[in-house]
Design a protein around this nucleic acid. Structure first.
Lengths: 242, 242
DNA sequence: TAGTGGTCTAGACCACATA
DNA sequence: ATGTGGTCTAGACCACTAA
C-alpha cells in the first residue's frame, strides 16, 4: 500500500487528510486506530503518529474512550504558523491563484542587518524584494537580506523568485534549519500602501521579522514579510499541550 | 526515578528542560538517547517523545548522526502560540512580576457574539474585562464573552480573575478543548490607549480574536485580547515539518 | 567504522466513554 | 462489559556524521 519514502507516518497522514477532505468518512467519525492500522497494513503507532499530527493541525479531535472525529471548525485554519510554508502554497490553501513578482534585487551594506546576523558591519547583502498576488491582488510583500558572501553558485532572477529557504541549500552550500520569527504589527508607510495597493483609509498590518538559521545554528538570513490582513486572515489552533 | 502521573514523557521533558536551563550539560551537547534512556530508566521511545517536544519548542536541535544540542537562540522564544498559556504565566516567562485587574463585569446581549457562538441573538452574555500587568505596567487587555446560560454554579469576582479556560470546566459543566484564534492587527482606539497607557504617538497593536470550543466541539465563548507589543514581543519558531 | 538520531513494529496495560 | 484512545516498552533496522 505504502512505500518507504517519505515516511510511512507522513503518507498515512496525507492519505487520511485526503479522505477527510473528500468526505469519505461518514458522520464525521474516523475509524478506530486498530482498524486503520489493520486496513493500511502498518502498526498502530504509525497510525497514532499520523493522527497526532492531524490533531495538532486542528483537522481532527480525539476523545479517549469515545473515538476520533473530524473537526470542521479546524479546517478553517489554513496556515500553521509553526510550520514553514512557501507563500505560494499558502495562497493556494486559501483557494486563490498565486503569482510571484520579483520587484527588485540590489546589493548593499546594511549595518543593522549585519549585527543581527553576526557579520561585519560593512559586509554587503543581497536585498531581494518580492510581491505575492492572490487572484491578481497583492497580499504579501517580502524583503530578504542575504549575505552576499555565503552565495557560492551563480543564480538567475528565476532562482530568486523561489522561497529563500529553498535557495540556500542549493546555492549557499548549507542547509536551512528554522526561522526565529517575531510578530510585529505596524501602520503601513506610504511605500507599502502603494506596493500592496491598500485602501486609502489607514489600517494596521501584521509583519513577520524572521531570522533564518542553518544546520549549524548560525544565523544565515533576515527577512521581513508584510501581510494584507483583510485578504489573508492568519488563523491558528491553540490547545492544551500537557 | 519517575512517577506514574503526569506522563513519563512530560516528566522527562521537564527534567531535561530544567537541566538545560541550569546549564548542567557541557558544550551545549545533550547525552545520546540510549544513554538518557538507561540513566532515567525509561524506554528510548519515551526519551524521544520528550526530545521531540523540546525540539518543537525550539529548545534543542537534533542532527541525525551527530547528536542533540541546546539551541540558545530558541530559548528566546517565550510563548508557543500553538499552546494555551495563562497570561499570568506568560508574563512570568518574560521575567516580570504579573498582576491581574478585574476591570468590569457586565451582563448584556450581543448579537454579533451570539452569531459567532451559534446562539439566539437576544441571549445575554457575561462580558468580563481584565487587564494584566507586568512589573506594574499594563501589557494585555482582554474582553471575554461567556453565554450566561451555560454557567451552572455561583461564582465570585475572584473566580472571574482566573483564566476562562479554567473557569469553564469548573462552573459550566463542560470541558474546554481548544481555541480557534485569529490574529488581527489594529490601530488602538482611544479607550485602549488609556487602558494600556500607550505612548501618545500612535502605533499598531496585535490582538487575538478567539473562539473557545468545548469537548463536543461546540463554540462556548468568545474573547479578544490586546497585546502591548513594545513590551511583550511575540516570538515563535517555524520549522520544516515533513 | 563506530556512534548517533530516524523509523517502524508488536504487544502490553491503563483510563475513559458508552451502552 | 466492550471498545475506544493514552501510555510505555523492547527491539529491530536504517541513514547519517564524524573520526
Amino acid at each position: 500500500m505504502f512505500q518507504r519514502s517519505p515516511s510511512l507516518v507522513e503518507q498515512v497522514k496525507s492519505y487520511l487528510k485526503r479522505q477527510i477532505l473528500q468526505g469519505n468518512f461518514d458522520n464525521g467519525r474516523i475509524p478506530a486506530e486498530v482498524e486503520l492500522a489493520r486496513n493500511l497494513n502498518v502498526s498502530r503507532n504509525t497510525v497514532r503518529d499520523a493522527l497526532s499530527r492531524l490533531e495538532i493541525e486542528g483537522v481532527i479531535i480525539r476523545r479517549q474512550g469515545a473515538g476520533t472525529f473530524i473537526n470542521k471548525a479546524g479546517l478553517m485554519v489554513k496556515s500553521q504558523l509553526s510550520e514553514i510554508v512557501p507563500y505560494q502554497a499558502l495562497i493556494e490553501e486559501y483557494g486563490c491563484t498565486p503569482a510571484i513578482e520579483l520587484i527588485s534585487v540590489e546589493e548593499l551594506p546594511s549595518p543593522a542587518t549585519a549585527e543581527k546576523l553576526h557579520r561585519h558591519a560593512d559586509e554587503p547583502f543581497l536585498l531581494v524584494k518580492k510581491r505575492f498576488l492572490a487572484d491578481n491582488q497583492p497580499v504579501i510583500f517580502s524583503s530578504t537580506y542575504l549575505p552576499t558572501r555565503i552565495i557560492r553558485r551563480a543564480y538567475t532572477p528565476d532562482d530568486l523568485r523561489r522561497p529563500v529557504f529553498e535557495f540556500i541549500p542549493e546555492f549557499c552550500e548549507q542547509d536551512f534549519s528554522y526561522f526565529l520569527t517575531e510578530l510585529v504589527p505596524l501602520i503601513p508607510p506610504d511605500w507599502l500602501v502603494s506596493a500592496l495597493k491598500l485602501p486609502p483609509q489607514k489600517s494596521a498590518l501584521v509583519s513577520f521579522e524572521e531570522i533564518g538559521y542553518n544546520q549549524n545554528n548560525e544565523p544565515a538570513l533576515m527577512a521581513i514579510s508584510y501581510f494584507r490582513n483583510d485578504l489573508l486572515r492568519l488563523r491558528l489552533i491553540r490547545q492544551n499541550s500537557s
